[in-house]
Every structure is written in C-alpha cells, then in structure tokens.
Design a protein around this nucleic acid. Structure first.
Lengths: 327, 327
DNA sequence: ATCATTTATGTAACCGGTTACGGAACTGGT
DNA sequence: ACCAGTTCCGTAACCGGTTACATAAATGAT
C-alpha cells in the first residue's frame, strides 16, 4: 500500500491523502472521512523512509562511549537507558543503539538515520567524539556534565554534593581513616571524591591520597580486586567510599573473602542506589541517583533540541543519602 | 552533499556515482578513483532513508514484550541485548528498541523502519504479538522457545536439562525437602521446574507442589517476598531452586533477614549465572546461561532471515552447573 | 576490414512520500 | 450583481537515491 494507491481508491490526488495523513486543516470533512476509512481498511502506514527524506527520521541515537561491556554490567546505566527509551517511545521517537567503533556514529548522522544523539555519561577520554559531534552541528545531549565542555546540554546530579553527603555520613559515624575506590577515567567519580575530601578537610581530617584507588573501569571484579589490595594497607581503613554501587558490591565480596565483616570491621558506602543495593547482604548504604528520571530528562531534552533546533537548558537532578546496613 | 552534487563535481552521472558507492564492477578504475576521492574529500555519506525506499533499512527492532521495567532489572536480559547489539553493529545493522505499546511494533514494520525483529524471550502471554507478526510475514527470531510455536526461529538453551542439573546437584547434597520459586508467566521457568521435578521423581522423591511459588514477574523484591512466605512453611525446606539469579539474590536477602544462614540453614541455587552471582555473599551456585552468545546468535539469525528471506534453523546453546558457596 | 562482443557511461523512469503554486467553487459583504 | 476572500483540491516538481535500458567506444575474432 502506498499513498498513490490510497489516492486512487479514494478518487483524489496524492496531495489530498498526504494532507489527511498529516492532519492538515484544509480538507473537506467528508473527503477526510472517506480517506481515513480507506486507510483504516487497508491498514496503510506511510513509509517512514520516504518521509524522512524530506523531514525528520524520528530516530535518536544512543551513543555508548567506551567499552559497552562495562556499561551493560552496570545496572545504573541500564536504568538510564530504560528511562530514555520509555520517554522517547511515548513521544513517538525511536531509540537506535550506536556502538561508536571508529567514527561510525557520525556516519549514522550523516546518513540521516538519526536526528540527534544522547551520549551516555561521556568521560574525559572521548573528546574526539564530542568535538566531531560539535563540528558537525549534530544535536546531542549528555547524561553527565564535563568541566571541559561546560556549554553542552546535559542532565546530571551534583556529584560534589553527593561526595559531601557520603563524607558527612561517615564522619558522623566516627570514621577517620577512609579509602576511596573509583573509576579513574570518569569525571563524575573525580568530583565525587573531591566533594568527599573537601568535607573531610573542612572537618580537620586530611584524606590519605594513597588510599584513593582508581581503575580503568567500574566492574564488580575490579571493585573486588581493588579492595583486596586496599585492605592490606596498615593501618587498615575503617570505611570505603565506592564511586558506584557496582564497585561497592565487589568490595563487599572482597571483605567477606578476607574474613572481615561489614559494617563491624569495615563500613562501605556506594553511589547510585541500584536495585541490587537493597538486596545484597548486608544491604548497601548509598547515595540515590535518579537513573530513570535522568533518562527521561535526556530524552525530553534531545526532542526539544531536535524540534526547536535550539540547545535546551541543562538540568540538575536531586539526590539524597540512603542509609542501610553497610555503615 | 547528495549523489547529484558528487556527480556534478566528478563530471559524471548519478548512475556512475551510485555504481561506485555500491561497489559495482562496471566502472573504469580511473573514474572510480576520481569519484572516491571526491566522496572522501566532501565526506559524503549516502542518505540511508532514500536508500531504504528501494532497499532494506538495515534496522532490526528489538521487541521487549511485557513490562520493560522487569526486563531491565534483570542483568541476564541486558547481557542478551548486549550480544545482539554487538553482533548487529559488526554487520552494519542497527538496533532499534521497540516498546510494544498497543500494536506499534507492527506499525514500525509497516512503516519500513525495520527489516525484522528479535523478540526478547517471549512468554505464553504474548500470542497476539507473535500471531500478528506471523500474519504480516515479518521476519523475526525469538530468544526463547515456546512449545505452542514450535516452528518459530529461536535460540535457546535446554531448560529441562538445566532443571535436572540443579536437581542432581541438590540431591547429591542430600536435600529432600526443596522449594521452587519462579515466574509463573514464562515457559522457560515452567520447563526448568519440570526438569527439576522429573529428576527428583526419578530418584524416588516427589517434590511438594505447594512449595512451587509462582509470581508474575522475576524481580529482586518478588524473590525476597516469595521467600519470606515460603520459609514459614513447616517443615521448612532445606533448599530453594530459583528460576533465575535475580530471584535467587532476592531470596538470599530474605534468608538473611530471617536470621537463616546460607548454605548452612538453607541452600540456594539460581539460574543464568549473571555477573552479580559471583559477587553476592556468599557467591551463588547457579546454572550458566550464555546470554551474550544467545544475543549474538539471535542477531546472526535475524540477519540471515532478512537477507535470504528464509527462516533460519533454531539453535540450542550449551549450559552447565556452576557450583559456588550457596549450596 | 568487418562484425560481434565487451566495457563504460548516460538517460530517464521510478521509489513513496512532500510541497509550492494555481485555480475552481463557494461564501459573504456592499 | 460584483468582487474579495475562503475553502478545497489537483498538477507537477522535488527529495536523494536505484535501476532498466540504450548507446558509444574499445576490443577481439576472423
């Protein structure tokens, strides 16, 4: 079924059918009904590709920077994706997953497969990607802020404040010798640690920099491994602040294997409040991070960007401390 | 940049440029080089939408049946998705996420947005979806088998055998009074239980049907709740076989809250071997389920289906028992 | 030298839509 | 009765590609 066939059946021109499909006013109500009935009867759906030649594709690309393996292992990112696709879907947009091998994300844009992008939590290592998107004037929205790219449209939380929340909590429990594990390559982790350290400093305690453990990625395994090394330090830290919950859960596993009990021997606090955080044993104290809402916001923003061709305002989402049993 | 502009610059016709783009043989090597240089110079990429009017879109839709919330909470499905998108991406296909509200997945197909679908682990409740895909002759591949739809192209494991592996393991540890928790609405769960029960029966033990707990979805929370109820039964079961790891981890949390220690007071065995299974404490005994490979297979199969227009052979992937600390 | 074949390229129609423009028929105000 | 403004609809060009067909030039066989 094509628009021409419908037109023939309705004894009108393609133009009139097009007008009906696109809900334009200047069609007689009787004619409109006739055409709509035929469309309904033959279950006609206009070819999206033909449409997209002259208009938008209504596709949004999700760029998964760096190694997708690590993204998918972290339920936090998955929840962001869920928010994105839910919101896009409700607005009649479609999400296309892009693995950016080489520069194919740009090809995808130049091919007009997508109208814009959401960049999943960009880190400092992907400046090439961001620069080329900027150069091509591709609309895109990031689900994390980057200091070096202040002007980008982004949705994020206040990571510094998150770090300070963790610090205040551990301070209130009397922890003076604390360690931090996190992903070195990502700016949010860095800022979380800065906020953490700052708060300790304001309370007269200098966090030992040698207890800042950074890794390339944030997986369960890496959280485990870092913690094994970390806990051999003397004096042994009494608390660990993990850059995210995945690392924290890896850390908990390491404590268990070392015969240390949480929170008696060592306290652990995570970040993100993924669903597993409530169900590991003991349940994990963490900082909430509204992943789904972040995704929804990113989707709304990119749609606004695409449709108005104007960069939307960045947004900051609220967070809070969630006290459970690991502290 | 369009094909006509490139043609003008190269002093040839659109046709010749088209031939070069599509790597057809009948172009003089000098002409070809000239055109390729211009394409390179202007960074031209053919419009995918125009292409897709006459050819394929190279998009594959991922249908997430039932509630996406529960899908995304389960790392197993996420890993399948990862396998799918990795493989599609390597073959120059693109993954489009489809939330099937109402019948929009069909619209997407009729609009020619996608060439075919992968249906993520269909269950018995989505016969309408499957029937309409069949009716429209849409190519699709399922990441789970359904008895009622034997003829569909699918990739799956031998769930019955998985259940028997779990049973044999628990039997070897002397567990006679065992419970099962699982998702009622999904066939794989049912078959896992059947295999489990069968093996017990072959060993002269009848599994108490009242200890088969079924729920609508398989979340951490539901695993927790079911286990709380389950463990009030007298005599208390000495082992729980969970339909998947997410439920198992929820169950472990419930045991902890009830003051029961795993595996001393109660053994737990899961299914799928998600990454968290190794890192919860104690680490979870489970049945491996090659999620990534399943995704890769599904992607390969749908590409074969689309390109050959012939339904590919179904595949069965190997599994094995992974013994850890909960049994 | 002639003719058949191959090679290289172009012309024009087509795919399934949208849209600028024009014009006929109807409406209403004076 | 006349003119201006609406309302409704069609014609034809266009979007950015592909493709059936034609043709000119080069090649090779006899």
């Amino acid at each position: 079924m094509t628009i021409s066939e419908i037109a023939k059946l309705a004894n009108v021109s393609k133009t009139t059918v097009s007008r009906v499909i696109n809900n334009r006013p200047d069609v007689d109500s009787y004619t409109r009904k006739t055409i709509l009935d035929i469309i309904e009867k033959y279950d006609y759906h206009p070819n999206a590709n033909a449409k997209a030649i002259l208009q938008k594709s209504r596709n949004v690309g999700l760029i998964i920077p760096y190694n997708a393996e690590f993204i998918f292992e972290n339920p936090f990112f998955v929840e962001v994706m869920h928010g994105i696709s839910t919101s896009l879907s409700q607005n009649n947009y479609y999400l296309v997953i892009c693995y950016p091998h080489e520069q194919n994300y740009l090809d995808i844009y130049k091919q007009k497969r997508v109208d814009g992008f959401i960049v999943l939590s960009p880190n400092i290592g992907i400046t090439t990607l961001l620069d080329s998107l900027l150069e091509k004037n591709a609309p895109f929205v990031c689900t994390a802020r980057l200091e070096a790219y202040k002007d980008l449209a982004s949705v994020d939380i206040d990571n510094r404040y998150g770090g300070s929340l963790a610090a205040k909590h551990l301070l209130s429990l009397g922890h003076k010798n604390v360690a931090f594990i996190g992903r070195r390559t990502i700016e949010s982790t860095k800022v979380r640690f800065e906020g953490f350290e700052e708060t300790y400093r304001q309370n007269g305690i200098i966090v030992d920099k040698s207890l800042f453990f950074g890794a390339e990625e944030a997986t369960l395994e890496i959280g485990y491994d870092m913690t094994r090394v970390l806990l051999e330090k003397t004096p042994r830290p009494t608390a660990i602040f993990a850059g995210n919950d995945t690392l924290a859960i890896g850390a908990m596993s390491a404590c268990k294997d070392l015969g240390l009990s949480v929170p008696e021997d060592i306290a652990i606090i995570g970040f993100d409040d993924i669903s597993f955080a409530s169900y590991v044993t003991p349940s994990l104290t963490t900082i909430s991070h509204p992943a789904f809402k972040k995704g929804v916001a990113a989707a709304e923003m990119i749609i606004e960007y695409i449709e108005s061709n104007k960069k939307p305002e960045s947004r900051t989402l609220p967070i809070e401390l969630v006290v459970r049993k690991t502290t």
